[in-house]
Simulated scan of single mutants.
Amino acid sequence: MTTDPRPLYTRATAQAARLIRTVRPEQLTAPTPCTEYDVRALLGHIVGGTRRIAVVGEAGAGQGEPMTAPDVPDDGWAEAYDEVRERALKAWRSDERMASSVTVPWGEIPGRAALSAYVMEIVAHTWDLSEAIGRPLALDPEPAEFALAAARQALPEGPREGRPFDAPVPAPEGAGAYERLAAWLGRVPLSRA
């Protein structure tokens, strides 16, 4: 991908921050389309994944960084996410980091490709969270279009052994960008599950 992912990452993470602020305590145990997570675990994964990409941006590598955040109190998710989000945005400001190689769990890749993958990550999990808590906000389609293009480039259409995504499922007729991305990642809306 040749598009600079930083503006879309900024928009996607700002949108995720707004959505996280709408989560009510009674929703924390609700299921999500990302079947291994309830809402609380998904929030932990979102905070942990954002911390990981911040570390990658700061140090050029982040494989040892956990993808969870188990020490966040139930009323602290918005604050925890805002903190790691700001850290990640700062870590990826430099054009040098975008052009240099970084090490992520799946290998050594250009910084631009790493941040593009994390646009896909946050956009997909924003959809998961939105579905789980009843779609309280309209979602910006542009980050989802970018994430879908990144996902199609990075993930094969067939079996995905060793990857944290199921094989694609058919998207509903007339599906928007988020639903098409979710389908490419093997997710099914809770209403269809």
Rank of each mutant, 00 (worst) to 15 (best):
A59M: 09
A59S: 15
A59F: 13
A59K: 15
G60D: 01
A61Y: 03
G62H: 08
Q63S: 13
G64N: 10
G64S: 06
E65C: 15
E65Y: 02
E65I: 10
M67C: 13
T68M: 06
T68K: 02
T68G: 04
A69Q: 05
A69F: 04
P70R: 05
D71V: 01
D71L: 00
V72N: 01
V72D: 01
P73M: 06
P73H: 04
D74L: 02
D75H: 13
W77A: 04
A80F: 10
A80N: 02
Y81E: 06
Y81C: 02
D82L: 12
D82A: 13
D82V: 09
D82P: 10
V84T: 09
V84R: 05
R85A: 00
E86C: 07
E86D: 10
E86P: 00
R87Q: 12
A88V: 06
A88K: 02
L89R: 12
K90S: 14
A91Y: 03
A91N: 06
A91G: 07
A91V: 04
A91L: 11
A91M: 03
W92D: 12
W92P: 09
W92G: 11
W92M: 10
S94F: 13
S94G: 11
S94E: 14
D95S: 15
D95Q: 15
D95I: 09
E96M: 08
M98C: 12
